[in-house]
Write a protein that binds this DNA or RNA. Structure first.
Ligand SMILES: [Mn+2]
Ligand SMILES: [Mn+2]
Ligand SMILES: [Zn+2]
Ligand SMILES: [Zn+2]
Lengths: 133, 133
DNA sequence: CCGTTTTTAGTAATGATTACTATTTTTAAA
DNA sequence: TTTAAAAATAGTAATCATTACTAAAAACGG
């Protein structure tokens, strides 16, 4: 019930916070093993889930097969590339208006929360499709 | 490449169209087996995927473990109950405004599409939590 | 009909995640 | 510091949803 301070949890969190790539659990497993070669995949999953439940990190349940994790717990949005699967942060002033409207919609519906996600080709995949790479 | 007319496909589609519950593939498998006891789960998955690819039905890649299917191909939104997992259609006039803004946001981001989903307790689970059931 | 294409049932395989368990580590109190 | 309880771990097994494979059957188009 209470968090212990373990090297596993510390390294998982610090590696996640270094990344802007929204890694999956096994992406992190690969990265963390360079510091802690003995760590098990189950430990990575367990710690990520615990930290997400505690609000220390975010678990992104985007469409697609694997869940992704985000060290940035502020409310923000993501775009997934349908070609390579990359997930990028999205910024746009108008999203504040969307949030305001949806906040009213939540009240009217008696709903608790909303989720928005975008799909679109990332820079690299755009270049590739244009034959530039 | 071309669709053959099979009883399996016909029954899957007609049963899906009767439902407003956004069933999973195995929900439909259970239902369809009453008409076609020999059908296999793989056939249900394959036909649902094919029909979704052809735009005859919708595949909902909501967060959560299983994919769900919708006989209604019009653009509309859904709310998932975090307690029982039920998925219901959502209607609200203000969503048109959200769509308009997001359509501009798509252009500005160079994105292709957006997805919105809501979370909120359904009627039954609200009653249950209020101790009325 | 008849050769070709598509689909099927049944089963095996896959991939992501979760569960189990004996052992180790951490914690907090004595 | 010692120590008993609580939490976490590595390693492994199990689960769940989905996809892949395959030989046989059905649908198609002429
Ligand atoms: Mn992010
Ligand atoms: Mn619907
Ligand atoms: Zn890409
Ligand atoms: Zn409910």
């Amino acid at each position: 019930m209470k968090f212990s301070r373990t090297s596993q949890r510390r390294v998982i969190l610090s590696e996640l916070r270094k990344l802007k790539s929204h890694p999956t659990a096994d992406d992190l497993y690969t990265i963390v093993r360079e510091k802690l070669p003995q760590i098990s995949l189950g430990t990575v999953y367990r710690n990520l889930d615990q930290m997400a439940a505690a609000g220390i990190i975010q678990k992104l349940e985007l469409s697609g097969r694997q869940k992704r994790f985000d060290g940035n717990v502020e409310k923000h949005y993501h775009m997934r590339c349908p070609h390579c699967g990359a997930v990028k942060d999205v910024e746009n002033e108008r999203l504040a208006d969307v949030e305001n409207i949806l906040s009213d919609v939540l009240d009217e519906l008696g709903a608790d929360s909303f989720w928005i996600e975008f799909t679109g080709h990332c820079k690299d995949c755009n270049k590739a499709e244009a034959g530039l790479v």
